[in-house]
Design a binder for these strands. Sequence first.
DNA 1: CGGCGCAGTCCTGTATACAGTCTGGATCGC
DNA 2: GCGATCCAGACTGTATACAGGACTGCGCCG
Lengths: 260, 260
Amino acid sequence: MTGTRVHPAVEAEEARADRTPSQTVRAQIELRKLVLSGELASGDRVPELPMVERLGVSRTPLRMALVRLEEEGLLEAIPSGGFAVKAFSEREVFEAIEIRGTLEGLAARLAAERGAERAGLERAARCLEALDDVVRPQDAAVDLSRYVELNAVFHDILLDLAGSEALARQIQRACALPFASPSALVSVQSAPGGDRSLLAVAQDQHRCVLSAIERREGARAEAIMREHARIAHRNLERALANQEMHLVPGSALIRRRFGT
Amino acid sequence: MTGTRVHPAVEAEEARADRTPSQTVRAQIELRKLVLSGELASGDRVPELPMVERLGVSRTPLRMALVRLEEEGLLEAIPSGGFAVKAFSEREVFEAIEIRGTLEGLAARLAAERGAERAGLERAARCLEALDDVVRPQDAAVDLSRYVELNAVFHDILLDLAGSEALARQIQRACALPFASPSALVSVQSAPGGDRSLLAVAQDQHRCVLSAIERREGARAEAIMREHARIAHRNLERALANQEMHLVPGSALIRRRFGT
DNA sequence: CGGCGCAGTCCTGTATACAGTCTGGATCGC
DNA sequence: GCGATCCAGACTGTATACAGGACTGCGCCG
């Protein structure tokens, strides 16, 4: 499947990775990394041949990756051909978060109205307890990466409870903009001077939405998830006000109103 | 840009079309047509070489088109490689409509809260008047294609009023499932025995949502658009109950519970 | 008679060659 | 000196060649 390999070293490298994740996928992942880290400046064209050289894949899989990243929303097609790194205004970032909140609200409502399986609800409850353990230490340093991980798991479980593949796809797409994902902005609130209490608020919302789903209170579940997403709004405002954009993932894609 | 052409006739054909719409786009359009018409059966693999022969493009642009259609949601990747035509359950169809309604509701709310430009509101009003002319003839045959066209225009204008590119993208994606688009199911209600009065109801909702946006009543605008989408739910139920699925676009993708 | 192994064929993933077009710069004319 | 034009380089879109897997059908063995 791999065809003639140019660099034998590369072959070895991906052999130890689990099961050769196809040049296309590798290119997609590497390219995404470059875009999010800002190594490819926002607005710049992404030239194929230099990228081929840089990533060590040939043009065909690279182009596939480019197409996928365009659909993902990280790149945009240049009229005359090729792709460029997309730029986002602050407003668009807010909108992306609002979209995610709305869709997650829909997921919560569907879960509540349709009734979720006991097993799923219990998984969610266990996840909440684990989150409690992370959030509880009030002054000690919160294990941020663990919080982010568990938070993502909880949001995934909620999606599962809704049991809609189409909705899952749509939410995944909304979260493709890195600053729109559920745990994108927690780093802001746990930064020095950040509002740690928001972590507790978010956790309370987690509890409330799960309770609402159990009681089949659809409207309430939906409202809570919407408001939950708006915590990200607040963190974003804080980051913008305090020059803390470096804490925001994918901040390189966001064009500030004034200069960098 | 076109490279070596295999069939000179094809070259002539696309020369009169406006500006060679790139083999990739052509392949995408043609493939979508084949999928929606059901010529490629739901669940079937889409083999590249036969398609190359059938569409008269080479493998490279064909594969690009396959990737795009997968992102669009019409195809799904086969684990062992390649793509297959996706199949949708009735439940997924309902969910797709609900997702569209939710997102259009968000668009209406944003338009209302942010305040829309006068020019846009006037365009919407003119579109409504044109729709009135189409809906009014109570017993005469309604010009369905014109209704569908104007309806689509109105929904587009609403999106414009929201002024969110990200949201527009997301709604466009939701409408990629053909049975989920705003005018997908009007053919059911204008079929013999269909409930024509629903056209009037839908038109009233159009009026109400525009009024709500003008008055900046965000919650109301949102609720109306959600309910508006649920007309499609009702039409779908009718089509399912009355064996009228042939009126539903992309019905070939929908797997009925019992047989065809 | 059924299950397993094996080979052939089909098919995809990847690499690369080729041609057309756009861009940037330098040069020439005014 | 400034602007328009022309040329060259680069880049993309497309076509095609190649190699490795996966599935199918058949034959063999238990």
